[in-house]
């Protein structure tokens, strides 16, 4: 950074303002400022408070990307205010920036939101070590570096909520635990000392669990700690199969169905997959299927394409499979 020349440019901010005690509706206040390339988003929040309006409210504590308090949204992107440089924001979005809390519908005062749903979901995955540990141990409980690596940075989560409030599945389905809670769950599932048998079952339940993740990668994109929550979600899926707690339902059959299809055809048999996943519930798809059929979008079983060299694929499935359902 220090070798770069410091540049200054004018930026127009549209800032979300709301005081739940006084206002019926939120409104946006405009501020125009000269911003230097060295500033972070938190500097702008500070300047609004110090130079324009002392009542402007936001959370911050450490200013070092550790406490997780300062996450907000810039042009709809969740971001950690004390870590995000203004030059990145300008590069992404130009010189007109909208500053909002992580969730406008949860706003209490300006950038401050009620994060209760986040913490409830965090608590729901029992984010602590369940282990029978001798109260008077005679030696240390060692974890090898190799085993510690399994945590895959999941223990670096600062609970900032950036991913949680960027997640479309959380937005639509209020039961869904969300990416941060899954990171926490994975943190302890991957810990060889942990013996909680319920957690993995809990995070695999329908509606609330990992199977409702839409695989949009928003969480991976926004995490200021590069934790890649969806990677942890994928690992929780895999653990459920490996440890035999995966229930036989439409979601798990959908994943396993791919294997059956590939074994038979090399390629996916789309109709076969839906049938395998849904079972008798397939009837609910009939109206759309008929429309698709009329438009030549459905292949009859006898016309199913097959991959060339299918025997290779079948051989590899035999030799490389690591899971049984």
């Amino acid at each position: 950074m220090s070798t770069n020349k410091i540049t200054t440019q004018k930026v127009n901010f549209k800032v979300f303002r709301f005081n739940a005690d006084e206002d019926y509706l939120p409104y946006y206040e405009d501020y125009s400022m000269d911003v230097t390339s060295e500033e972070v988003v938190l500097d702008i929040l500070n300047r609004i408070k110090w130079d324009y309006d002392g009542s402007f409210s936001y959370r911050r504590s450490c200013r070092h990307g550790i406490c997780g308090a300062c996450a907000i949204k810039v042009n709809g992107r969740s971001t950690l205010a004390c870590k995000e440089s203004m030059s990145t924001m300008i590069e992404y979005f130009g010189n007109d920036l909208t500053i909002e809390p992580l969730s406008t519908k949860r706003a209490i005062k300006d950038m401050i939101i009620d994060k209760a749903d986040f913490w409830e979901k965090h608590a729901a995955v029992t984010p602590y070590l369940a282990a029978d540990i001798d109260e008077c141990p005679t030696c240390e409980n060692l974890v090898s570096p190799h085993d510690a690596e399994e945590l895959n940075e999941a223990d670096l989560c600062i609970q900032c909520g950036a991913c949680h409030y960027a997640c479309p599945a959380v937005e639509i389905n209020s039961d869904f635990f969300g990416p941060a809670a899954f990171v926490a769950a994975y943190r302890f599932e991957a810990d060889i000392r942990d013996s909680d048998a319920e957690r993995l079952i809990n995070v695999n339940e329908e509606k609330q669990g990992v199977w409702d993740c839409v695989k949009c990668f928003e969480c991976a994109e926004v995490c200021p700690k590069d934790i890649n929550p969806i990677e942890k979600i994928t690992k929780l899926h895999q653990m459920a199969f490996k440890k035999g707690v995966a229930k036989n339902n439409v979601a798990t059959r959908h994943a396993v169905g791919f294997l059956h299809s590939i074994k038979k055809h090399g390629v996916l048999d789309e109709g076969g997959l839906v049938l395998y996943s849904e079972g008798p519930s397939i009837v609910k798809h009939i109206p759309v299927a008929l429309q698709m059929f009329r438009k030549g979008k459905i292949i009859m079983p006898w016309n199913m394409p097959k991959s060339d060299n299918l025997d290779e694929i079948q051989k590899l499935i035999k030799s490389s499979s690591t899971v049984k359902f």
Binding site: H237, F241, A255, S261, G266, S307, N309, L316, I317, V323
Partner: peptide, 26 residues
């Protein structure tokens, strides 16, 4: 690539990560 298999569509790896890697690598 007429020999190609399905990529697993981001679901196969939920079940069997290694197999999914092998098939895509092929």
């Amino acid at each position: 690539l007429t020999e190609a298999s399905c990529c697993g569509a981001s679901h196969l790896q939920d079940y069997d990560d290694f197999l999914s890697l092998v098939l895509n690598a092929r």
